[in-house]
Amino acid sequence: MPETVLETQGLTMQFGGVLAVAQVDFRMDARELRCLIGPNGAGKSTFFKCITGLLPPTEGQIFMRGQETTRWPSHHVASLGVGTKTQVPSVMDGLSVFENIWLAARRFLPPRAATRKADETITRLALGPVARSSPGRLAHGERQHVELGMVMAGDPWLVLLDEPAAGMTGGDVERLTEIVEEFARTAAVVVVEHDMQFIRSIARTVTVFHRGAVLLEGHVDAVLADPAVRSVYLGQAA
């Protein structure tokens, strides 16, 4: 039986009177690739932030590789080997692309090894031509790649990607698909996405969020054919 790398039990996040995430039980295995979909406001991103430690959940528990990580600060979660890409690209604009990726590698490696790792990551992502420039000057798609590079440089065993395809052009999405597949070879990957075409190209198992709870979970084709899911996406109350 494959190892469970991420599990939540009754995870709940309440903002005042708004229940953003309600009693979510979620689990995934090592090297699994999982997509989270759902309409806007379904609680995907909040669920995500609870896992990464950016938000402390109101109730419930989170386990990573069997260890409870509920309400851990995000740097503790990251230090376990969890790589996160946030919804809004989060890069360090005042530094070069190389420095951005070097810093991510440096967390887990001594300086020289971090340099090798950063060079290697830059080659893998074909960021060589822009390695010396600031991510602030890059196009949106390239900024996303820089952030993925930072995730990659940490050699994570759990990768959390929040809307990686947002605002990307067709070619960028193709490259992104390859990158996600590559992550999935060594890590469990969770992708929150809206782009259905992208999801169809990468997904095996899909979890659908609706109103803060898990509506459905299953193989991508079955889920997308489900009438309840379709009505949720078309905006009718199911």
């Binding site: 950016l54 740097h75 946030t86 005042g94 810093l103 440096r106 930072m150």
Partner: peptide, 24 residues
């Protein structure tokens, strides 16, 4: 040193530094 470069990274983006695993 690495400490200084990480400090500059924190100046640039605290959230990212934390998500990299640095104790901000």
């Amino acid at each position: 040193s690495s400490f200084g470069r990480i400090a500059v990274g924190i100046r640039e983006n605290e959230t990212r530094a934390a998500l990299m695993g640095y104790d901000v």
